[in-house]
Computed example of a mutant assay.
Amino acid sequence: MYNRGATKWQKRFTKLRSFRLPLLITFMALMFVVVILGIDKKKPTSQLGLMTQNDSNLDDESVIRFDPTVEILNGTEIIWQIPNSPRSVLFLAHGCNGKAANFWDKSTNCDHCVGLPEERAIVLEAIARKFAVIAVSSKGKCWSLMKETLVVERIIKWWVKKQNLESLPLVALGASSGGYFVSMLASKMKFSSIVVMIAEGVFDQIDVTEHYPSTLFVHMPKDKRRKKMIDANLEIMRRKGVDVAEVQCLELPLTPRFLADRVLGLDLKNSVQLFNLFKEKGFIDKNGYLINDGRVIPWKEAMSERKISLPNKLFVNYIQEELNLAFAYHEMTSLQSLQIFNWYESHL
């Protein structure tokens, strides 16, 4: 209410002040939303967020892109990528029947790269976290623990020196055969920490002391035999003074959009078709959980019978990996990337 004796200017000022307060509150609320959304957009940590960025055509510094370099050194293939201002070096070791090319998408720089869903997501997370990444292909189907340990040690040291990264800490991740390999390599090289995935390591074959790098076991407890050995190694390594921990990966239920969400480029129509097929064939239970390992159920034959076509023949390999992941018995996983990279960063 205005004073009767107030001047015309005072009346206008009072009206303006009463109008500006709610306007200021509204403006501040909008700014808060913008800031929160901006932080979430620039620093994604989930696979879905990283995949969305990688597929974006936005010319933005926050977009994570694959830009690998391929080299052949004395008959051994190495593939690597270095982000701006790297803070650490990550060595990746694939499992049996794997190769370095599994970690990057096909591109002009790497026309034989295949970008398996879980492998590519790990590299994207690494690049987003400013880790320089180097992957090496094994000579044979699986890693030779004795013959290739010295070879890979020399390659990593040569590459680190060539790229002027010698001042950065080294970390490593290996899955299955690569997990055994990394656990052996860590007894020869100085890593600040390592991740041994779906493997118990070769700690019965090496001399573990308090100087052995901090070790995180990422495993699938459905594999009871391996879980038992990992439990034993955790206890032994703790007694030796090694900083160790574990992350257990549990099975996942399939949903109509599960495969579309996890396989880049697979549309929702195909994902729904496959989900319905799995239900009809009894490959999943009433809650969506696979009744058997994805490697065992005849889903490819059933898909062929139903004449379900995929946009790319490589999608069969992508889907296979995600089914193995959902069954959670023995497969590389990126779902635990947050724990994995937090482990690395806490030991740099």
Results as ranks from 00 to 15, higher is better:
134 I>T: 07
158 W>P: 02
166 E>F: 12
168 L>E: 07
157 K>F: 14
169 P>E: 02
141 K>L: 01
164 N>L: 15
155 I>S: 10
135 A>M: 03
136 V>W: 11
161 K>P: 02
160 V>Q: 14
158 W>M: 15
123 V>F: 06
161 K>E: 14
140 G>A: 11
146 M>S: 08
123 V>N: 06
137 S>T: 10
145 L>D: 12
122 I>S: 01
134 I>G: 02
122 I>M: 01
126 A>T: 01
142 C>E: 05
165 L>M: 11
146 M>L: 15
163 Q>C: 10
126 A>H: 05
169 P>A: 10
160 V>R: 14
132 A>R: 08
144 S>F: 11
170 L>P: 09
128 A>H: 13
139 K>A: 08
134 I>F: 04
140 G>T: 10
159 W>F: 05
127 I>G: 00
139 K>S: 03
133 V>Y: 01
159 W>I: 09
165 L>R: 12
125 E>C: 01
160 V>W: 10
125 E>G: 13
168 L>G: 13
134 I>V: 08
130 K>A: 04
129 R>Y: 02
161 K>L: 11
150 L>V: 05
133 V>G: 01
164 N>S: 04
155 I>P: 08
143 W>T: 01
148 E>R: 05
150 L>M: 13
129 R>S: 04
141 K>C: 04
140 G>P: 09
141 K>I: 06
156 I>A: 04
133 V>D: 01
128 A>Y: 12
135 A>V: 08
127 I>A: 02
129 R>F: 03
132 A>P: 08
143 W>G: 00
128 A>I: 00
125 E>V: 03
132 A>S: 12
123 V>M: 05
160 V>T: 14
152 V>L: 10
155 I>W: 05
140 G>L: 03
125 E>S: 09
145 L>C: 07
132 A>G: 11
142 C>P: 02
165 L>H: 02
134 I>E: 00
146 M>F: 14
159 W>A: 06
137 S>Y: 00
167 S>P: 00
160 V>F: 04
132 A>C: 06
164 N>K: 10
132 A>K: 12
142 C>W: 06
124 L>Y: 05
131 F>N: 02
137 S>R: 01
137 S>L: 13
150 L>N: 12
166 E>K: 15
127 I>E: 00
167 S>Y: 11
123 V>W: 00
122 I>K: 03
134 I>H: 01
164 N>V: 07
130 K>T: 14
148 E>D: 07
153 E>Y: 12
150 L>E: 13
124 L>N: 07
125 E>R: 14
159 W>R: 06
141 K>F: 08
122 I>R: 00
162 K>D: 09
145 L>R: 08
131 F>A: 03
127 I>D: 06
136 V>I: 07
163 Q>V: 14
145 L>A: 09
163 Q>S: 11
145 L>I: 12
133 V>K: 05
149 T>C: 11
142 C>H: 09
135 A>I: 03
168 L>H: 06
149 T>R: 15
143 W>E: 03
149 T>M: 05
143 W>H: 12
157 K>P: 15
150 L>F: 04
158 W>K: 15
